[in-house]
C-alpha cells in the first residue's frame, strides 16, 4: 500500500478540516515548544562559535625564573623546538615586556610611571598549530613544561577557558534535559489531539473496520495528521527563530561586533535545523501511533 497515495492525503486533509481548531491548537503548542528549544540552540550555537574564536587566539606564555641557568634555558628551548605542534616561538625579554606595558598604560596610570623597577620576567609566547586538538595540546604541553627547572609559571587563560567549557557542558545538559521534557510534552499533546480526532470520527472508523479496512488503512491518515502537526510546529518555530536572529542582527550586530571582534551572530546550523524537523516528524509519529494503537486495540477487544 502506498503510504502517500492520494486517497490517504485526501482523508488526512478532510480530517484536519473537520477538526481545524484542535489541529491549530496542537500546531501552536508544538510551535511554542520548538521555539523555546530553538532559542536555546541559537544561544548554544553562538556561544560555541565565540568559544572557538577565542580558542584560536589562545597562546601559551611561559614565564622564566629570573635566576634561570643557561643549560636550563637551552633545555627548555629544545623542548619547544622538538614539539611539532608548536607553530612559532617568540622570546620577549623582561625589558621589552616592560616597555610595551608602560606604553599601554602610562597615559592612564600614574602608578605605572611611578614604578621605578621592572617587575616583569622574561617569557616565551608559543603559538600552537590549529586543529581540533589545539586546546588539548596546549594543556598537555603546559602541564609538561610547568615543572621544568627555571620555569616560573605558565599562562593561557586556563581559568576562563575551563569555566567557559563547564558552562557549555552545563548548557548542553540543560538543553538535553529541557529537550526531553518538551519532547514528552509534545508527544502527549499530539497523542491527545489525535485521540480527540479519532473519537470525533469513531463511527466512521468503526464502519470502516466492519467493511474490512485494515489497521494500516485506518492508521496512515492518523499518522499523517500527527506528522503534519509536529512538522508544522517545528517549521514555524524555525521561521520564528530566524526572525529573532534577524532582529538581533539588525539591532545589535554593531555592539556585538565590538564585543566579539568581527564575529557574526549566526543562525542555527544545518544539523540542528535538520534535527529540529526530524524531531517534529518523530513526535508526530509517536504521538499519533500511541492513540491510534490504543483505539484499535480497544476496538478489537470488543
Amino acid at each position: 500500500m502506498n503510504l502517500f497515495s492520494f486517497d490517504f492525503i485526501k482523508t488526512t486533509f478532510s480530517n484536519i478540516k473537520s477538526n481545524k481548531q484542535l489541529f491549530s491548537l496542537s500546531v501552536a503548542t508544538n510551535f511554542i515548544a520548538f521555539t523555546v528549544l530553538g532559542i536555546f540552540f541559537l544561544l548554544f550555537v553562538n556561544l560555541d562559535i565565540l568559544f572557538s574564536s577565542w580558542d584560536k587566539h589562545i597562546q601559551l606564555i611561559v614565564y622564566l625564573d629570573d635566576k634561570i641557568s643557561n643549560p636550563n634555558k637551552k633545555k627548555i628551548e629544545l623542548l619547544f623546538n622538538s614539539n611539532d605542534k608548536i607553530d612559532s616561538i617568540f622570546f620577549v625579554s623582561r625589558d621589552q615586556a616592560w616597555e610595551s606595558f608602560r606604553g599601554k598604560f602610562s597615559s592612564k596610570s600614574n602608578f605605572v610611571t611611578s614604578l621605578n623597577f621592572n617587575p616583569l620576567p622574561d617569557s616565551y609566547t608559543l603559538r600552537f598549530a590549529s586543529g581540533p586538538d589545539r586546546l588539548k595540546n596546549i594543556r598537555d604541553f603546559s602541564e609538561k613544561i610547568k615543572n621544568e627547572n627555571g620555569v616560573e609559571s605558565v599562562e593561557y587563560g586556563e581559568k576562563w577557558i575551563s569555566r567557559f567549557e563547564q558552562f557549555m557542558i552545563f548548557l548542553r545538559g540543560f538543553i538535553l534535559v529541557f529537550g526531553v521534557v518538551l519532547f514528552s510534552g509534545m508527544i502527549l499533546i499530539i497523542s491527545n489531539t489525535i485521540k480527540l480526532s479519532i473519537y470525533s470520527r469513531k463511527d466512521e472508523i468503526d464502519l470502516m473496520t466492519l467493511l474490512g479496512a485494515t489497521h494500516q488503512y485506518i492508521k496512515v491518515p492518523l499518522l499523517l495528521e500527527g506528522i503534519l502537526q509536529g512538522v508544522s510546529g517545528s517549521l514555524l518555530a524555525l521561521v520564528s527563530v530566524k526572525l529573532i536572529h534577524l532582529y538581533i542582527v539588525f539591532w545589535f550586530q554593531g555592539s556585538l561586533e565590538s564585543v566579539f571582534r568581527g564575529l557574526e551572530f549566526q543562525y542555527l546550523t544545518k544539523p540542528i535545523i535538520f534535527s529540529v524537523i526530524s524531531t517534529g516528524i518523530i513526535v508526530g509519529v509517536l504521538g499519533s501511533s500511541i492513540s491510534a494503537n490504543q483505539f484499535l486495540h480497544r476496538h478489537n477487544s470488543e
Binding site: T209, L210, L211, G212, T214, H215, N300
Partner: peptide, 14 residues
C-alpha cells in the same frame, strides 16, 4: 488472529 479479520470482513456485505 486479528490481522485476518479484515480479509474475512470483506467477504461479507452488510
Amino acid at each position: 488472529p486479528r490481522r485476518k479479520l479484515p480479509a474475512l470482513r470483506r467477504r461479507i456485505g452488510v
